[in-house]
Computed example of a mutant assay.
Amino acid sequence: MDNEHVDEQIIDNIGNLVAEERALRDRATEQQGLGPEDQARLRELEIRLDQCWDVLRRRRAKAEFGEDPGTVKERPADEVENYRS
């Protein structure tokens, strides 16, 4: 699979995750909060989005510098979530 196609798949995945996140946030506003399951799902979505953006950024950086973006692997959630620490 070519690199552009992989990037498009990642972007499509991001779009789907954002749509689900937005729906949950809208529901939270309408219902003045979310139940525990929806709160957990929202957190999962936030983490998954961070992972997708991380992969996409690193793939683009590799491509920009003439390296193979296909070598980029998804990092574990705890690594992506705590990289600022």
Rank of each mutant, 00 (worst) to 15 (best):
C52R: 01
R84G: 07
G33I: 13
R59K: 13
Q9H: 10
N13E: 15
V72T: 03
L49N: 08
V72F: 07
D54C: 04
R22S: 13
D2F: 01
Q9K: 13
R22N: 13
V6A: 06
A19P: 05
E81V: 15
D7S: 14
L42P: 06
R48Y: 03
K73Y: 11
A63Y: 09
W53C: 06
G66C: 04
V18L: 07
A28T: 06
L42I: 12
R58Y: 14
A77P: 00
E74R: 07
V80N: 01
V72N: 01
E30G: 11
A61Y: 10
I14W: 02
R48A: 12
E20F: 01
A19M: 11
A28H: 06
Q9G: 09
S85Y: 07
P36W: 14
I11E: 09
L49C: 07
V55N: 05
F65T: 06
Q32G: 03
E4W: 10
E64Y: 08
N3P: 02
E74N: 06
A61F: 12
E8C: 12
R27C: 00
V6E: 01
E30P: 02
A77F: 01
G66K: 12
E30V: 15
E4R: 11
P36D: 15
T29G: 14
R22Y: 08
Q31C: 07
K73H: 12
L17V: 11
R22G: 05
I47T: 13
A40G: 03
N82H: 08
I10A: 06
V55L: 13
R43W: 07
G70V: 00
A19N: 12
E46L: 04
M1V: 14
V18N: 07
P36C: 08
K62P: 00
V80F: 06
E74S: 11
I10H: 05
E37C: 04
H5P: 01
R58A: 12
D7A: 15
I14F: 03
N13A: 14
V18P: 00
H5R: 10
Q51N: 09
R43V: 09
L17F: 01
R48I: 03
N3T: 15
D78M: 09
I11P: 00
